[in-house]
Amino acid sequence: MDLDPRQYENLAVNDNDIHNIVLSYLIHNCYKESVESFIACTGAKQPTDYLEDMDKRKRIFHFALEGNALKAIELTEQLAKDILENNKDLQFDLLSLHFVELVCSRKCTEALEFAQTKLGPFGKEPKYMEKLEDFMALLAYKEPEKSPMFHLLSLEYRQQVADSLNRAILAHLNLPSYTAMERLIQQATVVRQCLSQEAGKDGPPFSLKDFLKS
């Protein structure tokens, strides 16, 4: 990887800042044991307000990731009653996760009943209609995993919903929805791309993966 035409080696970065960036990332993702180890190793200051709801968030996140959406909804409402009431998109995504789980368990009649009672009301809004139709189409297949809508059954989809839920809870707790680490990487990527364009290089665009390997 070529060095930037600009010099950044002589820019001093405070270790404390780096520790805080890493710590906020670990807390954001509910890596509780890693947080405790990190604090023990680095002697970083323990942010008590962050740790308070981490356990609850971790459980909610994992329930969503496993597809146990009803449990995730129940715990979310215990933690913050109005999160889902004020976020219909998230509510729809969580309910649809449960629907998918029923379809995967081959409980089609139950899935249809659930869809009619819980997902049906969303059909009044056109923005949910297309998604709803895709979910309903899963019912037609004996093996939904082999259907054109297979992505709705994937771990990636559950991860996406779990992430959205986690961000919503963090925002509700007046904490940043995105970690400083994520923002810094996004910003660094944009800067590298701009520098590459300025230098007039015809090579491939900046890739974070390649940069980390080099």
Binding site: A115, M129, L132, E133, M136
Partner: peptide, 10 residues
């Protein structure tokens, strides 16, 4: 096809 399946909701 998904539209027809969407009808099942109603």
């Amino acid at each position: 096809f998904p539209k027809l399946m969407g009808c099942l909701l109603y």
